[in-house]
C-alpha cells in the first residue's frame, strides 16, 4: 500500500491541459499530508517530452503505446486500470472532464475503488480521504468520506489554482509497459473534428455578454446581441443555448465549451451551473442578471441584478447607446 497521490494528466493534441496543473498543485498539498509522493500518470504516444512540464510531480509514470496516441475511453481506461492495479496509490485524482469522466467511473468498477465525482475539494481528515462534491446544479455541496486504502476522486476543473502545479523541473520519468491487448478495443478513434472557423474567438474577447436559459426563446437573442454590440463585445452562452442550436458551439463557455477570462463577463439569464462557472469564473469583472436571488452565478459575480432581464437589458443598451 502506498501513500502516493496520483494525478492523471490530461492532454489533447500534444498539449497538457491546465486542469492537470490544478490537480498537481493540490496533489502536492495532499501528498504532504499523507507522506507519499506526487505521481503524474501520462499516457500517450510520443509525448514523453511533455513530462518535463509536470515538474510539480515527484515522478511521472509514462505509458507509451500506439493505442494511446489519441484519447480513447477504452484503451485509456484499460491502461489506467493497469497502472492503478500495479501501484495501488492512496488517492488518484482525475479531472472531471469529458475524458476524465470516461476514466474515473471505469477504474472505479474495474479496480473496485471508491469514487467521488464533481469534487471541488479533497482533504485528508484523520487519515481518511474526504471529498466535497458540487451537486444539484451547484446548489448543494456534499462531503463524502472515501473508504479503503485506495480511492479515486474526479475533480472539477478550476477547483484549484493552476500555478502551484506549474513547476518546471525534471521529475523522474518511469516508463510503464502497456498491458496486453491494449490495441484490441471495441472503441476505435477515428479523427478529431476542429470547430468550424470563421466565428468570433470568444477566448480573445475583452468583453463577453453571455446568455443562458433565462432568455427563454431564440427570438430574444437579438436583444442581448444588441447589448453586446453596445458594449463593444461578443455574444457567448451557456450550454443549453448551444444544445438548442441557438448559437454555435464556438460560443459556449464552460466545461464542454471554452474557458474565458475577459475583462467583463456579463451573464444574462445564466443561473451558473458548476460546469459553466468553471469556464468563466476567472473573468476580471462579472456582472450577472438573474431573477433567482439564490442562483449560484451570484457567488462568483461581482455585481448582481435580480430585476427582470427583459427590462434591464434594453434599458442598459439604450443608455449605452445614448
Amino acid at each position: 500500500m502506498s501513500q502516493d497521490v496520483f494525478v492523471v494528466a490530461e492532454h489533447l493534441q500534444g498539449k497538457i491541459d491546465d486542469v492537470t496543473y490544478e490537480l498537481l498543485g493540490k496533489a502536492r498539498e495532499l501528498a504532504g499530508q499523507s507522506g507519499g509522493h506526487v505521481v503524474a500518470v501520462l499516457m500517450g504516444s510520443g509525448i514523453q517530452d511533455q513530462a518535463g512540464s509536470l515538474g510539480a510531480a515527484d515522478k511521472v509514470l509514462y505509458m507509451e503505446h500506439a493505442a494511446l496516441e489519441n484519447f480513447n475511453p477504452e484503451s485509456y481506461a484499460k491502461a489506467l486500470s493497469h497502472i492503478l492495479e500495479q501501484n495501488k496509490p492512496r488517492l488518484t485524482l482525475i479531472p472531471n472532464t469529458s475524458m476524465g469522466m470516461d476514466l474515473a467511473a471505469a477504474v472505479s468498477v474495474k479496480n473496485n475503488l471508491p469514487l467521488v465525482a464533481y469534487a471541488t475539494d479533497v482533504q485528508f481528515d484523520n487519515g481518511q480521504v474526504v471529498a466535497t462534491s458540487q451537486l444539484y446544479g451547484g446548489k448543494i455541496n456534499v462531503e463524502s468520506v472515501l473508504e479503503g486504502d485506495s480511492s479515486v476522486v474526479s475533480v472539477l476543473a478550476g477547483s484549484f489554482p493552476a500555478d502551484a502545479g506549474k513547476q518546471d523541473g525534471s521529475p523522474a520519468v518511469e516508463t510503464v509497459a502497456a498491458p496486453d491487448g491494449l490495441d484490441q478495443t471495441r472503441v476505435r478513434f477515428k479523427n478529431l473534428i476542429q470547430p468550424e472557423g470563421g466565428d468570433v474567438d470568444i477566448t480573445q474577447q475583452d468583453i463577453l455578454v453571455s446568455v443562458g436559459r433565462g432568455i427563454q426563446s431564440e427570438d430574444n437573442l437579438p436583444m442581448v446581441e444588441e447589448l453586446a454590440e453596445a458594449l463593444g463585445g461578443a455574444l457567448a452562452s451557456s450550454r443549453p443555448i448551444v444544445d438548442n442550436k441557438w448559437l454555435p458551439k464556438t460560443r459556449q463557455v464552460g466545461k464542454s465549451g471554452l474557458k474565458v477570462k475577459p475583462k467583463l463577463y456579463f451573464a444574462v439569464g445564466i443561473s451558473g451551473a458548476p460546469e459553466h462557472i468553471e469556464g468563466m469564473k476567472d473573468s476580471e469583472l462579472i456582472i450577472a442578471i438573474n431573477t433567482d436571488p439564490e442562483a449560484p452565478i451570484f457567488e462568483v459575480a461581482h455585481y448582481g441584478v435580480t430585476e427582470d432581464l427583459f427590462d434591464v437589458v434594453p434599458a442598459l443598451t439604450e443608455k449605452l447607446k445614448s
Binding site: 473496485n112 471508491p114 448543494i140 463524502s144 472515501l146 455585481y303 435580480t306
Partner: peptide, 21 residues
C-alpha cells in the same frame, strides 16, 4: 461496493458574493 458515504451536506457558503444592484 460504493466505498464512500456522505458525511455532510451543506449549501455553498455565501461568500462575499455579488454586490446586488
Amino acid at each position: 461496493e460504493v466505498g464512500s458515504s456522505i458525511r455532510r451536506m451543506f449549501k455553498p457558503e455565501k461568500g462575499a458574493g455579488a454586490q446586488m444592484l
